[in-house]
Amino acid sequence: MNGDQPVTTIRHQLSLNENFAAPLPGVREAIVDGSGRVNLTLDAMSTGLTRAIAGHFGLDSAQVFVGPGSGALLQQFLTAFAGGGEVVHAWPSFEMYPLLVQNAGATAVPVALREDAHDLAAMADAVTERTKVVLLCNPNNPTGTVFGEAEMRTFLDRLPAGVLVLIDEAYADFADQSAIANGIRLAAEDPRVCVVRTFSKSHGLLGLRVGYLIADEAVVTGLRPGSYFFRVSTVAQDAAIVALRAEEVMRRQCAEVAAERDRVYARLLALGLEVPRSHGNFHWLTLGEANESFVRFCAAGGIEVRTLAGGAGVRVTVGTPEANDALLELTRRFLHGDEPPGGDSQARQPVSVDRA
């Protein structure tokens, strides 16, 4: 290490979309209790968790498929149904989509967002005879925008019968439920529609890796051969079952995150930034050529954020009020050409932004 270089301590991690709410009631106890049985096979195929999720949503267990996080489920789904074909997806969206599609032996067909949101009409236009899957992200990561049910039904009306639609709803619990399409209801009505969700975000089980997919029984049956190699640990299953029961607390915590998100959004607008209205637990900042310097500036001030989509923008997680206030102060300093608190001696020039 160069002794002449200042060492910056990251005080706030705002690049990973973590949920900073306390673990849901009973989760700690379930983990501790389950740790005493990790030497046993127990429910290797997650039948108990599958039944619990099915019962929670009023579904048959044959419509639910459990896996170690939504990322693994996305990979399993694409491998099972997209190989040799094309997958249409919005862009920018979840940064792993192109890699997951490639790993499945398929070709990614990215469709540009319109006003930071899915352009469902353009995505329907991109479907060809080679399209096997259309991958949607609602709310979209990293922009936080959503599409509603009317838009989704119009989109489905334009799709060929043989094309599957997978809606990634990792952040759906943070969204305004009156604004976002109800993917689970659509999946119950249309056998082409599938929904993948995770316990990592709204339920706060990021470190345990638990997700689930809801789809027509035929789709779930097609996924089962891979389930032997993508299992959920029994401790994670126990925690997820308990977290699922804590629906009221989970909803309250998500509402608190959403309220803090909206407070930060209003402050960002007041600083003169154009920011999409987010329905996730993050914001998308587009500073053009200044994106990377903003990330470095925040790091010098003790906050970690990150650029995504080839540097097209900066995604900032909604953290604790303390972390958010620190981020807002750094943003103000950056826009005015100031130095970060106690930070870098390199002078900065004010950044010009379009007024929202």
Results as ranks from 00 to 15, higher is better:
E247R: 15
D216S: 12
Q346H: 12
T9R: 13
T9Q: 07
P276S: 12
T8A: 10
L328H: 08
E149K: 08
E247K: 14
V146G: 03
F297L: 12
L223C: 08
D262C: 02
H12W: 15
E95R: 11
G3D: 03
F65Y: 14
V66Y: 01
N39Y: 04
L135Y: 01
Y171S: 09
V249K: 14
M96Y: 08
E304M: 08
V314D: 07
S352N: 11
F77C: 06
L330I: 12
E18L: 11
A243M: 11
R315Y: 12
V101Q: 00
V146F: 05
N182F: 05
T145A: 10
R261G: 03
E95W: 08
S227W: 03
Q75E: 14
V7K: 05
Q5M: 08
G343C: 09
P191V: 00
T145H: 04
N140H: 03
E256M: 09
I10T: 04
F282D: 01
P341A: 13
Y265F: 15
L159Y: 02
D33G: 08
I10W: 01
G34R: 04
G226D: 10
G36I: 02
P191W: 00
A62G: 15
L40S: 07
R267L: 06
R315C: 15
I10K: 01
D354K: 11
G148H: 06
P341T: 09
L186T: 04
D176N: 11
E292T: 13
R153A: 09
A188R: 10
G207V: 07
L213S: 04
L335I: 07
A290D: 15
T128H: 03
L208V: 00
L159E: 01
N39R: 03
M96C: 03
A326R: 12
Y97Q: 02
L244P: 13
L73R: 02
F94W: 06
N103I: 00
A258K: 07
A44Y: 05
A90E: 06
F77G: 01
A80I: 01
E248C: 11
G288Q: 10
T8L: 09
G148V: 05
L24G: 11
I303H: 09
A52I: 04
M1N: 11
F155D: 04
A112D: 12
D173P: 06
L273Q: 07
Q75L: 11
S178Y: 02
P142R: 12
T47N: 11
L74A: 03
A240V: 05
S352R: 13
T154S: 11
M152W: 04
C137M: 03
G144F: 05
A309T: 09
